[in-house]
Design a protein around this nucleic acid. Structure first.
Length: 450
RNA sequence: GUGCCUAUAGCUUAAUGGUAGAGCCUCGGAUUGUGGCUCCGAUGAUACGGGUUCGAUUCCCGUUAGGCACCCCA
């Protein structure tokens, strides 16, 4: 082989290597700069879950692919086009979860949770995978905060409670005046009747429909109401509305949901054309959007009732309602609306930096003793920053400054012999010598005062 | 999955058919017992592959990634 060829081959290898070492398309790193947002959102969700009485459940990321085929619907886009599936060495067909609900329903059944007090209120937070074309607010791996209320009776109160949770979540994140769209898509009794009427209506206008809709007429007629083609848009106006066709039970159920929402003053818009992409929904469906141009990011929380799902996976009839919110979308909305993720409104985390103390050594000889004192302080619960690896005291204090820390401790050779340490207020520049014995108490006093 | 647009240092960007200049950041020094200001210095880029050309970062094609619209969805 000529050296020329070798070089070429080498180059190709490098190229392939370089490619494989970038993040997979649509999969994003959560970086330290995002951390305040995650902290804020997860904290809010956890706090609300505690107050509402939802307990954490965390099913595995992988489930049998069949679980989603059966529940979410074989004909749905989520399952048909967007699911990551894999075959194991043992020959099992698995899927990275494209949503939480079926896995949680499976866990509910598998662990006999119907024998626990009903309903079970469950919350989960974790990664979800959908093989889609990435856009703003849409990645192939993203994170959902998922809420499920399983068991008991199909009581409208639970629908309202779920909606209320997400309403509160958005409020805690200072996402003001979100838009809540609501609909009921009926039950086994009334939906098929409605579907027939819808098909009849559209059949009479078949020629005017777009290609997609013509095939949807067979596969998933409800989705016709979702189409944004101008032609189809026109037809929607005169299409029969599901809300007029609900059976008396569903109609009462929906009415009560609205009454509960009125009672807690959560505003909503009825949207008889709101249908959802998953098969298992019945009765209430809802979507929250951020108001303003941020609406573009898509629904920030959505869900619905799924009273029949458990049966489709071989369980008893188990009424259930759930919803999910996309964490990355919440972050996108917060950024777009310039909502600072931390409580005090400052964006650089100064709130935390003011509770930190910086430890610096002054000269090589005091370095190891400094290391020990830093460890001691951390064991006592203090947040201690340092840059002991740097040689000059000046450079160390520069780091303290960059981190926005207000208080520094300095240990030099002289202090070592005297068993003291210098405590310097970095804002005022005033410093004093302090005996090591008094250090912990003095720090407690100073840091809690801030 | 379809269509359109984009790609220069970690970030924001300048320029050119003759291989690139800055600001911010990072690191070091002035200042190895005292930070912020200042000054000096250093590191660092034309996404990748191919074509046209004497010569490509610039023009063309492909790939990859990102953005936007659709599809769909959190």
């Amino acid at each position: 082989m000529s050296p020329n060829n070798d070089a070429k081959k080498e180059k190709e290898k490098d190229q392939a290597a370089a490619r494989s070492f970038q993040a997979v398309k649509g999969m994003h790193d959560v970086l330290p700069v995002d951390e305040p947002y995650w902290e804020k959102i997860e904290g809010a969700a956890r706090g609300l879950a505690r107050r509402y009485g939802f307990s954490r459940i965390e099913p595995p990321v992988l489930e049998f692919a069949e679980l989603y085929n059966k529940t979410s619907g074989e004909a749905t886009d989520v399952v048909q086009k967007e699911m990551y599936t894999l075959k194991t060495k043992g020959g099992d067909f698995l899927a990275l979860r494209p949503e939480y609900t079926p896995g949680i329903a499976r866990a509910y059944m598998e662990h006999g949770m119907s024998r626990l007090p009903q309903p079970q209120r469950l919350i989960a937070m974790g990664p979800i995978f959908r093989h889609e074309r990435p856009q703003l607010g849409r990645a192939r791996q993203f994170t959902q905060i998922d809420l499920e209320t399983l068991g008991g009776v199909s009581d409208p109160m639970y629908d309202a409670e779920t909606i209320s949770f997400f309403s509160d979540l958005l409020a805690e994140l200072k996402i003001k005046a979100p838009i809540l769209r609501l609909n009921s898509i009926g039950c086994r009794v009334c939906r098929p009747i409605y579907k027939k009427q819808l098909i009849t209506y559209y059949k009479s206008h078949e020629a005017e429909l777009c290609d997609d809709c013509r095939s949807r007429l067979e596969s998933n007629p409800l989705r016709l109401l979702d189409c944004k083609e101008p032609e189809c848009e026109k037809l929607k106006a005169d299409a029969p509305s599901i809300l007029d066709k609900l059976c008396i039970t569903c109609s009462n159920h929906f009415k009560e949901v609205l009454e509960y929402l009125d009672e807690v003053k959560i505003p909503y818009e009825l949207d008889p054309r709101l249908v959802r992409g998953l098969d298992y929904y019945s009765r209430t469906v809802f979507e929250f959007y951020a108001s303003g141009p941020e609406e573009e990011i898509g629904a920030v929380a959505a869900g619905g009732r799924y009273d029949y799902l458990m049966e489709t996976i071989g369980g008893h009839i188990t009424p259930a309602i759930g919803g999910a919110s996309g964490v990355e979308r919440l972050i996108a909305v917060m950024r777009a609306k310039e909502i600072a993720p931390n409580g005090n409104g400052s964006s650089n985390g100064a709130g935390i930096a003011s509770k930190r103390v910086f430890f610096a050594h002054a000269g090589d000889l005091s370095r190891k003793r400094s290391f020990a004192l830093v460890k001691m302080l951390r064991e006592k619960g203090f947040m201690v920053s340092e840059s002991l690896a740097k040689d000059s005291l000046g450079n160390q204090l520069k780091v303290a400054d960059k981190e926005g820390i207000g208080l520094a401790l300095i240990l030099g050779q002289k202090e070592m012999y005297e068993n003291t340490v210098i405590l310097r207020d970095l804002t005022s520049g005033i410093q004093e010598e302090l005996s090591v014995d008094r250090l912990v108490d003095e720090l407690k006093r100073r840091l809690s005062m801030k």
